[in-house]
Design a protein around this nucleic acid. Structure first.
Lengths: 230, 230
DNA sequence: CGATAGCTTGAGAGTACTCAAAGTGGGTGG
DNA sequence: CCACCCACTTTGAGTACTCTCAAGCTATCG
């Protein structure tokens, strides 16, 4: 999952489970903290997240970290480059993943439909990453966090009476490293949004979107939403 | 071209021209300022840059721009998502590009070798973009510009006596929008590097790398390189 | 040779960061 | 079952970096 520009209807299609003609490989199961693979590992499989949330990250030598993406149900993860994994993958929750042989991506022999579906997923990945560039390079802290919350609300939000609720299995520092900010800035920005009654924080890993429109406005840089109490 | 982590030997392989069994399509030729395609256009072709430099960019509604990548010789550009272009492509120089039918990427029929090569390019694109995330999200202005110059030196630097020289066909604001900075900051950072005698600015579009090691150190966040005159 | 877009420099402001300390909550062991 | 502990989060104060706005400068192209 990347932070994409709102109003893109790529969601439904990418979320759909890939149907495979080949006999189903048994799915992988992870517990919180389990690693599926590490940077530098050979790629034997790609995975589609079935349930749960995983985190893809890379480390810089000096300890700085970039969270590349979160893997939510429907997402395909583990794209190889030169046959190797270029991120670590750690599970944040109990998770299930459907493996697909790397060879299904790299050659159509055997299952052309699966091959085409994996290729489509690869191309969508590039497009989503381009949106994410914009977010990392050009948005303020508030815009980044608001965008992030909007995407999650769209993608995995649950109705809760009049409001919508989202679960955040990741830590504040995971979010920070994903958005290119510090944990302190994430925390302060959450507090601002809460004080503005745009969100409510039920518990640190569960937040309620009280004013989705205001949040969306903030995500695209409409700074008036701060003052205005819709 | 993305700003990737130094010491990755992905260069040689990605730079190699794709050999096609199918009869050669006539190459596209662009002049400075020519657009090859716009965001939202249907994708009929992908292109490998043969010579020259192109710029891939997207616009936000409020005018903010993100330069997604520069296309240097060897780079493949124009990857479709849902059949559409997701960036604009403008040429910065006289340029020549070798077109490949989109169908060659999307189905192996006809030319499996070309299909595989395009797929490999697609996967490398993802990996390079992941490196670029790190750069956008976690590096300071000096680190960003130093990283950018290092990549260019590796990729298209020319020997000039004891030093290496690079051409920058893009404007300062192109660089700014690529690195997630402002033109003023780019300009100031160039000036700093010049005053530290790390680079020399021959003319605005041609710079000489005087101390490549210092530049490399700066690119990975070694702040001592500033004081030290190696 | 003058017009103009692009680049540089300066001053000041604002945003996000760093460092530090206090608060919170979930989990474990007594 | 409760208390303690530890990791995570929040808050605060001060700083540093990058941005904004403005003006001057430079190269390039008619």
């Amino acid at each position: 999952m990347y932070v994409t520009i709102p109003d893109k209807q790529t969601i439904e299609s990418s979320i759909a489970p890939l149907v495979s003609v080949t006999p189903k490989t048994t799915e992988a199961r992870l517990k919180p903290g389990d690693y599926l693979y590490f940077e530098g590992d050979d790629v034997a499989w790609l995975y589609q997240v079935t349930s749960g949330v995983v985190r893809l990250a890379r480390l810089l030598l000096d300890g700085r970290r970039q969270v590349i993406a979160f893997g939510y149900p429907g997402d395909i993860i583990g794209f190889p480059a030169d046959g190797l994994h270029h991120t670590d993958c750690e599970s944040l929750t109990d998770a299930r993943l459907q493996p697909f042989r790397r060879t299904h991506l790299e050659s159509g022999e055997g299952d052309p439909v699966l091959h085409a579906a994996l290729l489509r997923a690869t191309l969508r990945e590039i497009s989503a990453m381009q949106d994410h560039f914009m977010m990392l390079g050009r948005k303020s802290a508030t815009e980044k966090l608001a965008s992030f919350l909007c995407v999650l609300t769209e993608r995995v939000g649950e109705d809760l009476g009049a409001y919508r609720q989202i679960n955040l299995p990741m830590s504040r520092s995971d979010i920070a490293d994903f958005l290119g900010l510090t944990t302190e800035t994430i925390s302060r920005t959450f507090t601002q949004l809460r004080k503005r009654k745009i969100i409510a924080i039920d518990n640190n890993h569960s937040i309620i979107i009280q004013r989705p429109t205001a949040l969306l406005n903030l995500s695209v840089g409409d700074r008036d939403s701060y003052q205005r109490l819709d």
